[in-house]
Design a protein around this nucleic acid. Structure first.
Lengths: 171, 171
DNA sequence: CTGAACTTTCAAAAAATAATGAAAGATAGG
DNA sequence: CCTATCTTTCATTATTTTTTGAAAGTTCAG
């Protein structure tokens, strides 16, 4: 396979899987393009290579910057802004975990706390099932919260080697 | 807060977060409803409680069954089918991981293998960046593949206690 | 200042996704 | 068999999400 085709395939696939992750297709495609581009790209280059409009490129680049996956690069003496993506996938994964935790788990935990304070007689089966389930989800969420914080702080080698040790002890 | 309101809030929130996970709102709401219902529900009860059409209820229940999150329950002597959801969240999480791995990672890994075989001179910066990035993603994916398999097989106590031990050794 | 070069915004259009409900398909009891 | 009861399908409709592109905004060199 030639580079151009491989690149197109990579972008298409990254875009396809992105949609399963609460990220829109174009955003994931821009990310993929930047991941495999040796040089920083301008908005125009992104527009050209992906055949998207200026507005679309601008919005999704901003969103990628919000997610901490892409940075603006200002080159002295150039009017244009350039964009670059972190290429170390471990760092990318950690950044995604960090953001999703902030946007999802951290919002869910207080909601669960509220819900666990439902009034009612626990001898009522409906009340019991509700509180038990919420309680179960809370425990899980708080466990996950700690685990993800550790992963966010971890460096790659320490993390994987610890995880692998974990496996070794079981299998 | 009264049970009815708490239930409505839980369903609304579970539905909202579901959409970040490649699951549609209604599917997540049905799941939430079943999670907090002490009894198995018929399609009609799901329709009534969530105000959705018969076709919608049917489709999303099927999808939940495909995901292994809901089961059909046949009660002898009853014409209707009933539905029930696994209430242990650890099992639910494991099932979701299992399905998503099958639908995403297992499909991505062979694509990455293909892409890593791109032709071209590695002294060409574009080729080098591409192959390096793909290689980096492959390594990561294969590591994740093993880790997830272990999690899928693990039982809750073993898993969390191992993970907590992991933390203990670092902090 | 001025205006060329670039970025951002946002209302409108297009595309993608989800929901409806009526009709067709099962199934089981009589 | 028939028929009442329940489930499934799917063309149509509704909703949501994404994209476009022109206009407004910004910035900076001269």
């Amino acid at each position: 396979m030639q580079l151009a085709e491989a690149k197109a395939q990579f972008i298409a696939n990254w875009g396809r899987f992105g949609t399963n992750w609460g990220i829109n297709r174009t955003m994931a495609q821009i990310h993929a393009l930047l991941l495999v581009s040796p040089d920083n790209l301008s908005a125009d280059e992104v527009m050209d290579q992906l055949n998207i409009s200026r507005g679309n490129a601008n919005m999704n680049l901003r969103e990628l910057i919000d997610w901490g996956l892409v940075q603006k690069v200002i080159i002295p003496g150039e009017r244009k802004e350039f964009f670059t993506a972190e290429k170390d996938i471990w760092k990318v994964a950690r950044q995604i975990v960090k953001e999703r935790k902030k946007r999802e788990l951290d919002l869910m935990i207080p909601v669960l706390k509220d819900l666990s304070e439902v009034e009612g007689d626990r001898r009522d089966k409906a009340v019991k099932t509700f509180t038990d389930t919420i309680q179960n989800i809370r425990k899980f969420s708080e466990q996950a919260d700690k685990t993800l914080d550790t992963m966010i702080k971890a460096d790659e080698n320490w993390f994987w080697s610890s995880v692998m040790k974990l496996f070794g002890s079981k299998h």
